[in-house]
Design a protein around this nucleic acid. Structure first.
Lengths: 220, 220
DNA sequence: TCGACGCCTGAACGCATGTTCAATAATCTA
DNA sequence: TAGATTATTGAACATGCGTTCAGGCGTCGA
C-alpha cells in the first residue's frame, strides 16, 4: 500500500513506534531503546524530540485524543448508538490507536480521564440520537447508561486478546471494512443488549433498590 | 478487627503485599523492594521464599485462582446469573483479590487464560440456572453470551477507577455487604441488560448478519 | 550444651534503564 | 558559498532493578 520509502518525519515515526510498542508490551515495560529500534533511530533522538519518556507518553496521549476529536466531526459511524467506540474503529490506523488507548486508560492519568469523560459524553449524544430514531429504548438514567456501556466497551478493548481467544474476533479491527468478521462480536452484543434479564428479575431488583432508584436519576 | 500482632507467616505477608502492590501500581512497575517494604521484610527474603519476582507473580496467580475455585463450592451468590463475578466479590478479601485479578488479566499469560476460561464456563452454568429459574431470557448462543458478559464485567473491574469516577461506586467492593452502595452500578447494569436496543435495531442487524447468524450458534 | 537448621538481613554484583553530552551530518538562510 | 540551525549519533553516566551471597539470629533435637 505504502511506497518503499517512509515519508513520515522521524518524530512521527518515533511516536507511531512508541504507540505500537506501548500497546504491545505495556508502557512501563517498553524501553526507550526498544522504541528507538522500532523507529529505526537512536535512543538519544527520542529524548531530543520529546524530552523524556514521560513526555513521549503524553505526546501519544494527545495524538490519540486529537485523532478521536477530529473523527468526531465526520458523519456518525454506523451503529454508534450501540458501540460507543464505533467512530474510533473507522479512524485511519484505528487498530493501533485503539490498542494504545486501552493501555493508557488502564495506567490512568488525569489527562486520560478527560478523554474517557469525553467518550462518555459523546456516547450520551449518540444514544439520544438513537432513541430519537427509534433504534434504542429510552432510559431514566441516560448518563449512567452511556457511562456503563462506554466502560464495558473500553474494557472489552483492554481485554481484546481474551475476546479474540473466546469469540474469535479482533475487536480492535475496523468493523466497517469487513462486516462479516464483526458478526462474532456483534451477535453476542445484540444478544446481551437486546435484553437478557426478564421482567421478573427487573421487578426483583427494582424492589431491592426502590429508594436508591429515585436518587440515581440525577445525582450530579 | 484484627489483633495488633500479625499472625500471618512472612511468606503470606509477602504474597498479600505483592498482590496489593501489583494491583495498585502494575506488575512491571512494582519493585521487589517496594513489596518487601510493604510486607516489612527485606528484598532478599522475597527471593528466598519465592525464588524470583516472576515466580512470585505466578504464586499470586495461583493463590487468586485457588480462592476463586474454593468459592465455587459454596452457595451460588445472589445475582450470579447477571454478574459473573458476584461470587468473587463476596470472597474474603475480595477487593484486593479482584483488583489483582484485573491487573494480571491485562498483562496476560497462558496461566491466566485458563482462569478466564474457567470464569466463562462458570458463567455459562450460572446463566443456565438463571434461565431455568425464569430470571434470564434464553439464548441461541449461551456460550458467546456468557463470554461477552464475563469479559465486559472483567473489563469493568480493570477500569474500576473510571467506574468509580463516573458512577461513584467501587465495583471491586463486596456488594452483598452493603447493597445500598451497589445501586449506582446495579441500576445502570439493569438498564443495559434489560435491553437497550429496540426490535427495529434487532431486525436491522439480524438482516445484516443473516448468514453469519446460523454459523455462530455452534462454531466450536 | 551444642551443633544443625530454617528465617532473615544487608551489602554487593551485574545489568538495563532513562538521560546527558560532545561531536558529526544534514538542511536551511542569507 | 558561509554561517547558523537542526537532526542524529554513540559513548558515557547515574540510578534502580532483580538477584546472589555470606553471615547473624533464634529455635529446635540430642
Amino acid at each position: 500500500m505504502r511506497s518503499g520509502v517512509d515519508d513520515r518525519t522521524a518524530k512521527a515515526r518515533i511516536r507511531d513506534a512508541a504507540m505500537e510498542c506501548f500497546a504491545a508490551e505495556g508502557i512501563d515495560s517498553t524501553s526507550l531503546r526498544t522504541i528507538a529500534a522500532a523507529a529505526g533511530v537512536s535512543a538519544g533522538l527520542v529524548i531530543h524530540h520529546f524530552g523524556s519518556k514521560d513526555a513521549l507518553r503524553v505526546a501519544c496521549d494527545e495524538y490519540v485524543a486529537a485523532r478521536i476529536r477530529e473523527q468526531k466531526g465526520s458523519a456518525m459511524a454506523q451503529g454508534a448508538g450501540i458501540d460507543p467506540l464505533a467512530a474510533l474503529r473507522s479512524t485511519v490506523g484505528g487498530a493501533p490507536l485503539l490498542r494504545y488507548l486501552a493501555r493508557t486508560i488502564v495506567d490512568g492519568s488525569p489527562h486520560v480521564d478527560d478523554l474517557v469523560d469525553e467518550l462518555v459524553n459523546d456516547a450520551i449524544g449518540y444514544m439520544e440520537t438513537g432513541v430519537a430514531a427509534g433504534l434504542l429504548t429510552p432510559s431514566d438514567i441516560p448518563r449512567q447508561r452511556a457511562a456503563l456501556l462506554t466502560l464495558w466497551s473500553l474494557g472489552g478493548i483492554v481485554l481484546h486478546q481474551h475476546m479474540e481467544r473466546l469469540l474469535g474476533v479482533d475487536i480492535t479491527a475496523d468493523f466497517s471494512r469487513d462486516p462479516e468478521s464483526a458478526a462474532a462480536y456483534v451477535l453476542p452484543a445484540m444478544d446481551v443488549l437486546g435484553g437478557i434479564i426478564t421482567d421478573v428479575t427487573k421487578s426483583l431488583w427494582a424492589e431491592a433498590f426502590a429508594d436508591a432508584s429515585n436518587d440515581a436519576k440525577e445525582p450530579a
